[in-house]
């Protein structure tokens, strides 16, 4: 147990350090003086001096990094240049929307991708399989914004079943019912990823079904459903679980588009606006948090892999 966990965690921390250096360096890669870039042309010398001081730009580079990283470790990501409020607060405002959006999307991906993939595999070669695989191909190839716009056209503008944009917090009036604002965006975001998981589940099931040990299982005389669930599915899920980490990475970038299409007050929108405003501390903060999340999720995937696959221990 322990050695594997320690090694995986150590690797994640090393990655985080490397990523943080890149994120830190980003502000110094801006051509010209970052302070002028951030403040724009109309800045007064006092404002420039104040920002310079606040960012610690006069310290040696290594010191600057250590101070920045040290602050980040304590949860201080600096102050937004546009809002003049702590970056963590700016991010926190979009966090509820983004976290809920990602979670609901993940639920769709698992709920649709895995069972439908199993169905397609069991019915391999039939019309059901061909229909589902064709649909998956289509869903995987359509751009998220396009799917989003069509969902709005049909289910919001046309049928009026769901709201087309915005998201009031579940802590405000309406409570959990406000989640209906996230149905269409999460479906748009889930579509291409669920399609990928579907195809992966199907392919992986068919691969495993050809293994010798599946023939052994059948030879025992156990029921076919049990062969599928206990022997084929269990092994096929190994490949699917390891794909969830990558799915998450895809979600992050596609979420920016989705939040824009559905006008959701999430972190994706914060990022887009911060880039337009050249609010570098906020951009840095969002990227750092995203990297952390990504590493944590992949660590969880790796560790849960151990419980699914006893062979991992030896490697």
């Amino acid at each position: 147990m322990s050695r594997y966990v320690i090694r995986r965690t150590g690797a994640a921390i090393m990655t985080l350090i490397a990523a943080s250096i890149v994120i830190f360096a980003f502000i110094h890669l801006i051509p010209g003086d970052p302070v002028y870039v951030m403040l724009g042309d109309g800045a007064t010398p006092e404002q420039v001096a104040a920002l310079r001081d606040r960012l610690g730009l006069d310290e040696p580079l290594v010191m600057q990094y250590l101070i920045w990283a040290g602050n980040a470790l304590r949860g201080d990501l600096g102050v937004s240049i546009f809002f003049e409020t702590p970056v963590t607060q700016v991010i926190a405002e979009g966090a509820e929307t983004s976290i809920l959006l990602a979670s609901v999307t993940m639920v769709w991906i698992i709920l649709i991708g895995v069972p439908v993939g199993i169905l397609a595999a069991i019915r391999q070669g039939t019309l059901i399989d061909q229909g589902l695989s064709g649909l998956a191909m289509l869903a995987a190839s359509l751009p998220t914004f396009w799917v989003g716009l069509y969902l709005i056209l049909i289910f919001a503008a046309g049928l009026g079943w769901f709201p087309s944009s915005g998201y009031p917090s579940i802590f405000e009036e309406g409570g959990l019912v406000n989640l209906r604002y996230l149905v269409l965006p999460s479906l748009a975001l889930a579509a291409p990823n669920a399609a990928l998981i579907l195809r992966l589940t199907r392919a992986s099931m068919l691969d495993v079904a050809r293994e010798d040990y599946i023939r052994t299982a059948r030879a025992k005389g156990i029921r076919p459903t049990r062969v599928v669930l206990r022997h084929i599915l269990r092994n096929a899920l190994l490949a699917v679980v390891s794909a969830f980490g990558f799915t998450f990475a895809a979600l992050i970038s596609e979420a920016v588009v989705t939040e824009t299409v559905f006008a959701l007050p999430g972190i994706g929108r914060t990022v887009v606006q911060s880039i337009l405003r050249r609010d570098y501390p906020v951009i840095q903060g969002v990227i750092l948090i995203t990297v952390c999340l990504y590493l944590v999720i992949n660590l969880i995937v790796d560790l849960s892999y151990r419980y699914l696959d006893p062979r991992v221990e030896l490697e």
Partner: peptide
């Protein structure tokens, strides 16, 4: 080598 299910 391949006739037994590796995860059980």
């Amino acid at each position: 080598m391949t006739s037994l299910n590796p995860v059980l």
